[in-house]
Design a protein around this nucleic acid. Sequence first.
DNA 1: CGCATACGCGCC
DNA 2: AAACGGCGCGTTTGCG
Length: 484
Amino acid sequence: MLIDFNLKEKFKEPRRVGKKLPAEYFDLGVAFWMLNPDEEKYSLEFLSNRYLHQDGATNKELYNYAVKKLKEYKLEKLFYEVEIPLLAVLADMEILGIKLNVKKLKDLDKKLEKNLSGLAKSIYKEAGEVFNINSPKQLGKIFFEKLNIDIRGVKKTRGGAISTDVETLLTIRDRHPIVKYILEYRELFKLQSTYVRPLQELADKNNRVHTTYIQTGTATGRLSSQNPNLQNIPAEGEWAKELRKAFVAEKGYQIVAFDYSQMELRILASLSGDPEMMKAFNNDQDIHKLTAASVFNVSLEKVTPEMRRLAKTLNFGVVYGMGANAFAKTSGLSFSEAKKFIEEYFNDFKKIKEWQEEVKSQARTMGYVTNLNRRRRWLLSATSMFRGEAAEAERAAINMPVQGLAADIIKIAMVRVAEELKRRKWQDKVRMLLTIHDELLFEISEDIMKEATSLIRKIMESAYELEVPIKIIVKVGKNWGELE
DNA sequence: CGCATACGCGCC
DNA sequence: AAACGGCGCGTTTGCG
Protein backbone atom coordinates (compact mmCIF):
# COMPACT_ATOMS: atom_id res chain seq x y z
CA MET A 1 0.00 0.00 0.00
CA LEU A 2 1.14 3.50 -0.85
CA ILE A 3 0.67 5.93 2.03
CA ASP A 4 1.51 9.52 1.24
CA PHE A 5 0.37 13.07 0.61
CA ASN A 6 -0.66 14.42 -2.78
CA LEU A 7 -1.15 11.04 -4.39
CA LYS A 8 -2.87 12.78 -7.25
CA GLU A 9 0.53 14.05 -8.31
CA LYS A 10 1.82 10.48 -8.40
CA PHE A 11 -0.96 9.54 -10.78
CA LYS A 12 0.07 12.41 -13.00
CA GLU A 13 3.63 11.21 -13.44
CA PRO A 14 4.16 9.69 -16.87
CA ARG A 15 3.14 6.05 -16.62
CA ARG A 16 6.09 3.96 -17.64
CA VAL A 17 5.78 0.39 -18.79
CA GLY A 18 6.69 -2.01 -16.05
CA LYS A 19 6.34 0.58 -13.35
CA LYS A 20 2.87 0.11 -12.03
CA LEU A 21 1.64 2.01 -9.05
CA PRO A 22 0.66 -0.09 -6.05
CA ALA A 23 -2.88 -1.40 -6.14
CA GLU A 24 -3.91 0.40 -2.99
CA TYR A 25 -3.52 4.00 -2.04
CA PHE A 26 -4.02 6.01 1.06
CA ASP A 27 -3.87 9.77 0.70
CA LEU A 28 -3.16 11.26 4.10
CA GLY A 29 -4.32 14.75 3.21
CA VAL A 30 -7.66 13.51 1.94
CA ALA A 31 -8.09 11.23 4.95
CA PHE A 32 -7.55 14.00 7.48
CA TRP A 33 -9.72 16.30 5.43
CA MET A 34 -12.56 13.83 5.89
CA LEU A 35 -11.96 13.80 9.62
CA ASN A 36 -12.10 17.59 9.68
CA PRO A 37 -12.67 19.46 6.41
CA ASP A 38 -12.08 22.84 8.02
CA GLU A 39 -8.37 22.49 8.79
CA GLU A 40 -6.27 25.27 7.35
CA LYS A 41 -3.68 22.88 5.94
CA TYR A 42 -3.24 19.18 5.29
CA SER A 43 0.54 18.88 5.38
CA LEU A 44 2.69 16.43 7.32
CA GLU A 45 4.07 19.12 9.63
CA PHE A 46 0.72 20.64 10.39
CA LEU A 47 -1.12 17.37 10.97
CA SER A 48 1.72 15.95 13.10
CA ASN A 49 1.38 18.80 15.51
CA ARG A 50 -2.37 19.06 15.39
CA TYR A 51 -3.21 15.39 15.87
CA LEU A 52 -0.13 13.64 17.26
CA HIS A 53 1.28 16.57 19.23
CA GLN A 54 4.79 16.13 17.90
CA ASP A 55 6.94 17.69 15.22
CA GLY A 56 8.04 14.96 12.91
CA ALA A 57 5.50 12.18 12.88
CA THR A 58 5.92 9.59 10.14
CA ASN A 59 3.40 8.85 7.43
CA LYS A 60 2.78 5.53 9.12
CA GLU A 61 1.92 7.16 12.44
CA LEU A 62 -0.51 9.53 10.79
CA TYR A 63 -1.94 6.63 8.84
CA ASN A 64 -2.60 4.65 11.99
CA TYR A 65 -4.42 7.56 13.52
CA ALA A 66 -6.47 8.26 10.39
CA VAL A 67 -7.50 4.64 9.91
CA LYS A 68 -8.77 4.46 13.45
CA LYS A 69 -10.77 7.67 13.08
CA LEU A 70 -12.18 6.84 9.66
CA LYS A 71 -13.49 3.65 11.18
CA GLU A 72 -14.86 5.40 14.24
CA TYR A 73 -16.69 7.95 12.05
CA LYS A 74 -17.83 5.23 9.61
CA LEU A 75 -16.21 7.04 6.73
CA GLU A 76 -14.31 4.09 5.30
CA LYS A 77 -16.69 3.39 2.46
CA LEU A 78 -16.78 7.00 1.31
CA PHE A 79 -13.02 7.23 1.60
CA TYR A 80 -11.98 3.96 -0.06
CA GLU A 81 -14.75 3.72 -2.64
CA VAL A 82 -15.21 7.33 -3.63
CA GLU A 83 -12.47 9.74 -2.61
CA ILE A 84 -9.52 7.46 -3.29
CA PRO A 85 -10.67 6.19 -6.70
CA LEU A 86 -11.48 9.80 -7.52
CA LEU A 87 -7.80 10.72 -7.21
CA ALA A 88 -6.97 8.93 -10.43
CA VAL A 89 -10.00 10.34 -12.22
CA LEU A 90 -9.02 13.88 -11.29
CA ALA A 91 -5.42 13.24 -12.28
CA ASP A 92 -6.53 12.18 -15.75
CA MET A 93 -8.77 15.22 -16.14
CA GLU A 94 -5.97 17.55 -15.11
CA ILE A 95 -3.49 15.99 -17.51
CA LEU A 96 -5.93 16.06 -20.40
CA GLY A 97 -7.06 19.67 -19.96
CA ILE A 98 -9.61 21.45 -22.12
CA LYS A 99 -8.94 22.95 -25.51
CA LEU A 100 -9.04 26.68 -26.06
CA ASN A 101 -9.45 28.64 -29.24
CA VAL A 102 -6.62 31.03 -28.46
CA LYS A 103 -7.21 33.12 -31.55
CA LYS A 104 -10.75 33.69 -30.37
CA LEU A 105 -9.45 34.79 -26.97
CA LYS A 106 -7.04 37.20 -28.60
CA ASP A 107 -9.81 38.76 -30.66
CA LEU A 108 -11.95 39.01 -27.57
CA ASP A 109 -9.09 40.67 -25.73
CA LYS A 110 -8.81 43.29 -28.47
CA LYS A 111 -12.54 43.98 -28.46
CA LEU A 112 -12.54 44.34 -24.70
CA GLU A 113 -9.55 46.65 -24.84
CA LYS A 114 -11.24 48.89 -27.34
CA ASN A 115 -14.46 49.07 -25.35
CA LEU A 116 -12.60 49.64 -22.10
CA SER A 117 -10.58 52.58 -23.39
CA GLY A 118 -13.75 54.15 -24.75
CA LEU A 119 -15.49 53.69 -21.42
CA ALA A 120 -12.50 55.06 -19.52
CA LYS A 121 -12.57 58.18 -21.66
CA SER A 122 -16.24 58.75 -20.90
CA ILE A 123 -15.61 58.14 -17.22
CA TYR A 124 -12.74 60.61 -16.99
CA LYS A 125 -14.82 63.20 -18.82
CA GLU A 126 -17.72 62.81 -16.40
CA ALA A 127 -15.36 62.86 -13.46
CA GLY A 128 -13.47 65.88 -14.72
CA GLU A 129 -10.16 64.18 -14.04
CA VAL A 130 -8.13 61.06 -14.69
CA PHE A 131 -8.03 58.56 -11.84
CA ASN A 132 -7.70 54.82 -11.25
CA ILE A 133 -11.13 53.38 -11.96
CA ASN A 134 -10.08 50.06 -10.45
CA SER A 135 -9.54 51.62 -7.05
CA PRO A 136 -12.75 51.58 -4.99
CA LYS A 137 -11.15 54.16 -2.75
CA GLN A 138 -10.49 56.64 -5.55
CA LEU A 139 -13.83 55.88 -7.15
CA GLY A 140 -15.60 56.57 -3.88
CA LYS A 141 -13.88 59.94 -3.60
CA ILE A 142 -14.98 60.92 -7.10
CA PHE A 143 -18.53 59.70 -6.54
CA PHE A 144 -19.31 60.99 -3.11
CA GLU A 145 -16.92 63.89 -2.56
CA LYS A 146 -16.39 65.42 -5.97
CA LEU A 147 -19.64 64.65 -7.79
CA ASN A 148 -21.66 64.56 -4.57
CA ILE A 149 -23.80 61.64 -5.65
CA ASP A 150 -26.68 61.06 -3.22
CA ILE A 151 -25.84 58.18 -0.86
CA ARG A 152 -29.35 57.41 0.34
CA GLY A 153 -29.84 53.65 0.57
CA VAL A 154 -26.15 52.90 0.13
CA LYS A 155 -24.35 50.59 2.52
CA LYS A 156 -20.86 50.87 3.89
CA THR A 157 -18.01 48.42 3.63
CA ARG A 158 -16.48 46.52 6.52
CA GLY A 159 -13.81 49.20 6.68
CA GLY A 160 -16.41 51.94 7.02
CA ALA A 161 -16.06 53.42 3.54
CA ILE A 162 -19.08 53.99 1.32
CA SER A 163 -19.44 50.93 -0.85
CA THR A 164 -19.03 51.02 -4.60
CA ASP A 165 -20.07 47.46 -5.36
CA VAL A 166 -22.60 46.46 -8.02
CA GLU A 167 -25.52 46.62 -5.65
CA THR A 168 -24.60 50.20 -4.78
CA LEU A 169 -24.02 51.15 -8.40
CA LEU A 170 -27.47 49.85 -9.29
CA THR A 171 -29.14 51.91 -6.56
CA ILE A 172 -27.40 55.12 -7.65
CA ARG A 173 -27.63 54.32 -11.32
CA ASP A 174 -29.93 57.20 -12.19
CA ARG A 175 -28.24 59.73 -9.95
CA HIS A 176 -25.33 60.46 -12.26
CA PRO A 177 -24.43 59.47 -15.84
CA ILE A 178 -21.00 58.24 -14.77
CA VAL A 179 -22.48 55.25 -12.95
CA LYS A 180 -23.61 53.38 -16.05
CA TYR A 181 -20.15 53.67 -17.53
CA ILE A 182 -18.61 52.27 -14.35
CA LEU A 183 -20.99 49.32 -14.36
CA GLU A 184 -20.03 48.38 -17.88
CA TYR A 185 -16.36 49.06 -17.27
CA ARG A 186 -16.39 46.74 -14.27
CA GLU A 187 -17.99 43.92 -16.23
CA LEU A 188 -15.55 44.14 -19.11
CA PHE A 189 -12.48 44.65 -16.97
CA LYS A 190 -13.32 41.63 -14.86
CA LEU A 191 -13.67 39.49 -17.95
CA GLN A 192 -10.41 40.64 -19.42
CA SER A 193 -8.25 40.58 -16.32
CA THR A 194 -9.58 37.45 -14.68
CA TYR A 195 -10.37 35.24 -17.66
CA VAL A 196 -9.41 36.29 -21.18
CA ARG A 197 -5.80 37.20 -20.43
CA PRO A 198 -4.81 34.55 -17.88
CA LEU A 199 -6.37 31.76 -19.96
CA GLN A 200 -4.20 32.66 -22.95
CA GLU A 201 -1.16 32.60 -20.72
CA LEU A 202 -2.01 29.24 -19.24
CA ALA A 203 -2.71 27.41 -22.48
CA ASP A 204 -0.07 24.80 -23.42
CA LYS A 205 1.46 24.10 -26.86
CA ASN A 206 -1.66 22.23 -27.83
CA ASN A 207 -3.82 25.11 -26.69
CA ARG A 208 -5.19 23.14 -23.77
CA VAL A 209 -5.53 24.51 -20.23
CA HIS A 210 -5.08 22.31 -17.19
CA THR A 211 -6.76 23.19 -13.94
CA THR A 212 -5.80 21.70 -10.60
CA TYR A 213 -8.59 20.21 -8.52
CA ILE A 214 -8.25 20.58 -4.78
CA GLN A 215 -9.81 17.59 -3.09
CA THR A 216 -9.32 19.04 0.38
CA GLY A 217 -10.41 22.52 -0.53
CA THR A 218 -13.93 22.81 0.85
CA ALA A 219 -15.72 22.22 4.12
CA THR A 220 -18.74 20.53 2.56
CA GLY A 221 -17.21 17.84 0.36
CA ARG A 222 -17.14 19.72 -2.89
CA LEU A 223 -14.05 20.00 -5.03
CA SER A 224 -12.48 23.32 -5.80
CA SER A 225 -10.50 24.27 -8.89
CA GLN A 226 -7.51 26.55 -9.17
CA ASN A 227 -4.86 27.93 -11.47
CA PRO A 228 -6.98 28.48 -13.40
CA ASN A 229 -10.28 28.11 -11.61
CA LEU A 230 -12.48 26.56 -14.30
CA GLN A 231 -15.47 26.38 -11.98
CA ASN A 232 -16.25 30.09 -12.19
CA ILE A 233 -16.07 30.83 -15.90
CA PRO A 234 -18.71 33.49 -16.64
CA ALA A 235 -22.04 32.11 -17.80
CA GLU A 236 -24.43 35.07 -17.91
CA GLY A 237 -24.46 37.77 -20.55
CA GLU A 238 -23.28 38.24 -24.12
CA TRP A 239 -19.61 38.67 -23.28
CA ALA A 240 -19.67 35.58 -21.12
CA LYS A 241 -21.09 33.59 -23.98
CA GLU A 242 -18.29 34.77 -26.25
CA LEU A 243 -15.76 33.68 -23.68
CA ARG A 244 -17.34 30.25 -23.38
CA LYS A 245 -17.21 29.88 -27.14
CA ALA A 246 -13.43 29.85 -26.77
CA PHE A 247 -13.65 26.51 -24.92
CA VAL A 248 -13.83 24.14 -27.86
CA ALA A 249 -13.94 20.48 -28.77
CA GLU A 250 -11.11 18.72 -30.58
CA LYS A 251 -11.70 17.94 -34.27
CA GLY A 252 -14.10 15.01 -34.55
CA TYR A 253 -15.45 15.64 -31.05
CA GLN A 254 -18.27 17.58 -29.48
CA ILE A 255 -18.54 19.29 -26.11
CA VAL A 256 -21.26 17.65 -24.03
CA ALA A 257 -22.56 19.05 -20.75
CA PHE A 258 -24.45 16.88 -18.24
CA ASP A 259 -26.27 18.89 -15.62
CA TYR A 260 -27.93 17.57 -12.52
CA SER A 261 -31.25 19.42 -12.63
CA GLN A 262 -32.24 21.12 -9.36
CA MET A 263 -29.96 18.78 -7.46
CA GLU A 264 -29.87 20.57 -4.14
CA LEU A 265 -33.62 21.10 -4.01
CA ARG A 266 -34.22 17.46 -4.85
CA ILE A 267 -31.90 16.53 -2.04
CA LEU A 268 -33.67 18.90 0.32
CA ALA A 269 -37.02 17.38 -0.64
CA SER A 270 -35.63 13.91 -0.11
CA LEU A 271 -33.91 14.58 3.21
CA SER A 272 -36.82 16.45 4.71
CA GLY A 273 -39.44 14.15 3.24
CA ASP A 274 -41.62 17.15 2.59
CA PRO A 275 -44.67 15.78 0.76
CA GLU A 276 -45.36 18.92 -1.28
CA MET A 277 -41.86 19.28 -2.57
CA MET A 278 -41.50 15.56 -3.20
CA LYS A 279 -44.71 15.55 -5.16
CA ALA A 280 -43.38 18.33 -7.37
CA PHE A 281 -40.29 16.33 -8.27
CA ASN A 282 -42.12 13.05 -8.59
CA ASN A 283 -44.39 14.69 -11.16
CA ASP A 284 -41.46 16.44 -12.84
CA GLN A 285 -43.06 19.82 -12.27
CA ASP A 286 -41.48 23.25 -12.43
CA ILE A 287 -40.42 23.53 -8.80
CA HIS A 288 -40.13 27.32 -8.68
CA LYS A 289 -43.51 27.76 -10.31
CA LEU A 290 -45.09 25.33 -7.92
CA THR A 291 -43.46 27.06 -4.98
CA ALA A 292 -44.83 30.37 -6.24
CA ALA A 293 -48.34 28.99 -6.52
CA SER A 294 -48.05 27.65 -3.02
CA VAL A 295 -46.56 30.74 -1.38
CA PHE A 296 -48.83 33.20 -3.18
CA ASN A 297 -51.88 30.99 -2.77
CA VAL A 298 -52.81 30.98 -6.43
CA SER A 299 -53.32 28.25 -9.01
CA LEU A 300 -50.43 27.25 -11.26
CA GLU A 301 -51.89 29.14 -14.21
CA LYS A 302 -52.00 32.34 -12.19
CA VAL A 303 -48.27 32.35 -11.44
CA THR A 304 -46.60 35.35 -13.09
CA PRO A 305 -42.92 35.45 -14.08
CA GLU A 306 -42.33 37.87 -11.21
CA MET A 307 -43.90 35.49 -8.71
CA ARG A 308 -41.79 32.67 -10.07
CA ARG A 309 -38.65 34.77 -9.77
CA LEU A 310 -39.38 35.47 -6.11
CA ALA A 311 -40.10 31.82 -5.44
CA LYS A 312 -36.85 30.83 -7.09
CA THR A 313 -34.89 33.21 -4.90
CA LEU A 314 -36.73 31.82 -1.91
CA ASN A 315 -35.99 28.21 -2.85
CA PHE A 316 -32.29 28.85 -3.19
CA GLY A 317 -32.24 31.03 -0.13
CA VAL A 318 -33.81 28.36 2.02
CA VAL A 319 -31.01 25.94 1.20
CA TYR A 320 -28.58 28.56 2.50
CA GLY A 321 -30.52 29.50 5.60
CA MET A 322 -31.42 32.90 4.28
CA GLY A 323 -33.20 35.31 6.61
CA ALA A 324 -35.80 37.97 5.86
CA ASN A 325 -33.15 40.64 5.53
CA ALA A 326 -31.20 38.90 2.84
CA PHE A 327 -34.37 37.85 1.03
CA ALA A 328 -35.60 41.42 1.04
CA LYS A 329 -32.36 42.60 -0.46
CA THR A 330 -32.07 40.05 -3.22
CA SER A 331 -35.77 40.15 -4.11
CA GLY A 332 -36.43 43.87 -3.84
CA LEU A 333 -39.24 43.34 -1.34
CA SER A 334 -39.57 45.25 1.90
CA PHE A 335 -38.33 43.57 5.04
CA SER A 336 -41.82 42.87 6.34
CA GLU A 337 -43.01 41.46 3.03
CA ALA A 338 -39.93 39.28 2.83
CA LYS A 339 -40.54 38.05 6.35
CA LYS A 340 -44.14 37.25 5.51
CA PHE A 341 -43.19 35.21 2.46
CA ILE A 342 -40.59 33.21 4.34
CA GLU A 343 -43.17 32.41 6.98
CA GLU A 344 -45.61 31.42 4.28
CA TYR A 345 -42.95 29.24 2.69
CA PHE A 346 -42.27 27.29 5.83
CA ASN A 347 -45.95 27.03 6.49
CA ASP A 348 -46.41 25.40 3.09
CA PHE A 349 -43.31 23.19 3.43
CA LYS A 350 -43.50 22.32 7.09
CA LYS A 351 -41.21 19.33 6.90
CA ILE A 352 -38.38 21.43 5.57
CA LYS A 353 -38.58 23.67 8.60
CA GLU A 354 -38.67 20.63 10.89
CA TRP A 355 -35.68 19.08 9.17
CA GLN A 356 -33.67 22.26 9.45
CA GLU A 357 -34.44 22.57 13.14
CA GLU A 358 -33.33 19.00 13.64
CA VAL A 359 -30.02 19.62 11.90
CA LYS A 360 -29.38 22.78 13.89
CA SER A 361 -30.11 20.93 17.08
CA GLN A 362 -27.68 18.19 16.10
CA ALA A 363 -25.01 20.80 15.44
CA ARG A 364 -25.56 22.28 18.87
CA THR A 365 -25.61 19.03 20.82
CA MET A 366 -22.96 17.07 18.91
CA GLY A 367 -20.76 19.89 17.67
CA TYR A 368 -20.88 18.53 14.14
CA VAL A 369 -23.27 17.63 11.35
CA THR A 370 -23.12 14.77 8.86
CA ASN A 371 -24.70 13.99 5.53
CA LEU A 372 -26.26 10.70 4.43
CA ASN A 373 -22.83 9.19 3.77
CA ARG A 374 -21.59 10.33 7.14
CA ARG A 375 -19.43 12.99 5.63
CA ARG A 376 -18.77 15.25 8.56
CA ARG A 377 -18.31 18.92 9.31
CA TRP A 378 -17.46 20.18 12.77
CA LEU A 379 -19.44 23.22 13.87
CA LEU A 380 -18.35 23.85 17.40
CA SER A 381 -19.37 27.51 17.20
CA ALA A 382 -23.04 26.52 17.00
CA THR A 383 -23.14 26.99 20.75
CA SER A 384 -21.16 30.21 20.73
CA MET A 385 -22.33 32.93 23.08
CA PHE A 386 -21.88 35.36 20.20
CA ARG A 387 -25.26 35.17 18.53
CA GLY A 388 -23.98 36.12 15.11
CA GLU A 389 -21.37 33.41 15.25
CA ALA A 390 -23.86 30.78 16.38
CA ALA A 391 -26.29 31.81 13.66
CA GLU A 392 -23.55 31.53 11.08
CA ALA A 393 -22.78 27.99 12.21
CA GLU A 394 -26.46 27.10 12.03
CA ARG A 395 -26.68 28.26 8.44
CA ALA A 396 -23.61 26.27 7.58
CA ALA A 397 -25.16 23.32 9.39
CA ILE A 398 -28.36 23.22 7.37
CA ASN A 399 -26.45 23.70 4.13
CA MET A 400 -23.81 21.04 4.58
CA PRO A 401 -25.98 17.89 4.41
CA VAL A 402 -27.46 19.17 1.18
CA GLN A 403 -24.39 20.54 -0.56
CA GLY A 404 -22.33 17.66 0.79
CA LEU A 405 -24.63 14.98 -0.57
CA ALA A 406 -24.73 16.66 -3.96
CA ALA A 407 -20.94 16.56 -3.92
CA ASP A 408 -20.90 12.87 -3.02
CA ILE A 409 -23.31 12.02 -5.79
CA ILE A 410 -21.37 13.67 -8.57
CA LYS A 411 -18.14 12.15 -7.26
CA ILE A 412 -19.69 8.67 -7.29
CA ALA A 413 -20.89 9.31 -10.82
CA MET A 414 -17.43 10.44 -11.92
CA VAL A 415 -15.79 7.31 -10.56
CA ARG A 416 -18.36 5.03 -12.17
CA VAL A 417 -18.24 6.79 -15.51
CA ALA A 418 -14.45 6.53 -15.53
CA GLU A 419 -14.63 2.81 -14.68
CA GLU A 420 -17.13 2.14 -17.42
CA LEU A 421 -15.12 4.06 -20.02
CA LYS A 422 -12.08 2.02 -19.14
CA ARG A 423 -14.03 -1.22 -19.38
CA ARG A 424 -15.26 -0.27 -22.84
CA LYS A 425 -11.85 1.07 -23.86
CA TRP A 426 -13.52 4.38 -24.62
CA GLN A 427 -11.03 6.52 -22.71
CA ASP A 428 -9.99 8.35 -25.83
CA LYS A 429 -13.44 8.63 -27.34
CA VAL A 430 -15.09 9.96 -24.21
CA ARG A 431 -13.00 12.41 -22.25
CA MET A 432 -14.14 13.85 -18.95
CA LEU A 433 -12.99 17.46 -18.99
CA LEU A 434 -14.48 19.41 -16.12
CA THR A 435 -16.53 18.97 -12.98
CA ILE A 436 -18.45 22.02 -11.85
CA HIS A 437 -20.36 21.05 -8.70
CA ASP A 438 -23.51 19.72 -10.35
CA GLU A 439 -22.28 19.47 -13.91
CA LEU A 440 -19.85 17.29 -15.85
CA LEU A 441 -18.35 18.50 -19.09
CA PHE A 442 -17.08 15.98 -21.65
CA GLU A 443 -15.43 15.91 -25.04
CA ILE A 444 -17.03 13.04 -26.94
CA SER A 445 -16.12 11.51 -30.28
CA GLU A 446 -18.94 12.04 -32.76
CA ASP A 447 -19.06 8.41 -33.90
CA ILE A 448 -20.28 7.15 -30.53
CA MET A 449 -22.17 10.24 -29.43
CA LYS A 450 -25.52 8.54 -28.95
CA GLU A 451 -24.37 5.53 -26.97
CA ALA A 452 -21.96 7.55 -24.89
CA THR A 453 -24.41 10.24 -23.87
CA SER A 454 -27.09 7.76 -22.91
CA LEU A 455 -24.54 5.73 -20.94
CA ILE A 456 -23.28 8.72 -19.00
CA ARG A 457 -26.78 9.97 -18.37
CA LYS A 458 -27.76 6.61 -16.97
CA ILE A 459 -24.74 6.40 -14.69
CA MET A 460 -25.27 9.90 -13.37
CA GLU A 461 -28.96 9.33 -12.73
CA SER A 462 -28.39 6.10 -10.89
CA ALA A 463 -25.32 7.16 -8.91
CA TYR A 464 -27.50 7.53 -5.84
CA GLU A 465 -31.00 6.60 -4.78
CA LEU A 466 -33.04 9.51 -3.46
CA GLU A 467 -36.70 9.61 -2.44
CA VAL A 468 -37.31 11.59 -5.62
CA PRO A 469 -36.03 11.01 -9.15
CA ILE A 470 -32.69 12.46 -10.21
CA LYS A 471 -32.82 14.24 -13.54
CA ILE A 472 -30.01 15.02 -15.95
CA ILE A 473 -30.05 17.68 -18.64
CA VAL A 474 -27.72 17.01 -21.57
CA LYS A 475 -26.48 19.67 -23.96
CA VAL A 476 -24.21 19.25 -26.98
CA GLY A 477 -22.24 21.63 -29.16
CA LYS A 478 -18.97 22.47 -30.88
CA ASN A 479 -18.00 24.69 -27.97
CA TRP A 480 -19.03 25.56 -24.44
CA GLY A 481 -20.83 28.72 -25.49
CA GLU A 482 -23.20 27.15 -27.99
CA LEU A 483 -24.76 24.10 -26.40
CA GLU A 484 -28.19 22.77 -27.28
C1' DC B 1 10.45 44.92 -2.62
C1' DG B 2 7.27 41.16 -1.36
C1' DC B 3 3.23 40.10 1.34
C1' DA B 4 -1.22 40.53 3.57
C1' DT B 5 -5.58 42.79 3.51
C1' DA B 6 -9.62 45.12 1.69
C1' DC B 7 -12.69 45.25 -1.85
C1' DG B 8 -15.03 43.42 -5.40
C1' DC B 9 -16.94 39.67 -8.32
C1' DG B 10 -17.01 35.29 -11.30
C1' DC B 11 -19.41 30.41 -10.62
C1' DC B 12 -22.67 26.55 -8.37
C1' DA C 1 -30.12 45.68 14.06
C1' DA C 2 -29.97 41.86 11.56
C1' DA C 3 -24.07 37.78 7.31
C1' DC C 4 -27.34 33.60 2.35
C1' DG C 5 -24.18 28.24 1.92
C1' DG C 6 -19.58 26.84 -0.78
C1' DC C 7 -15.31 28.49 -3.52
C1' DG C 8 -10.68 31.28 -6.27
C1' DC C 9 -8.67 35.39 -8.04
C1' DG C 10 -7.54 40.28 -9.74
C1' DT C 11 -6.27 44.97 -8.29
C1' DT C 12 -5.17 48.33 -4.91
C1' DT C 13 -3.24 49.73 -0.75
C1' DG C 14 -0.52 49.82 3.37
C1' DC C 15 2.84 47.53 6.04
C1' DG C 16 7.37 45.61 7.30
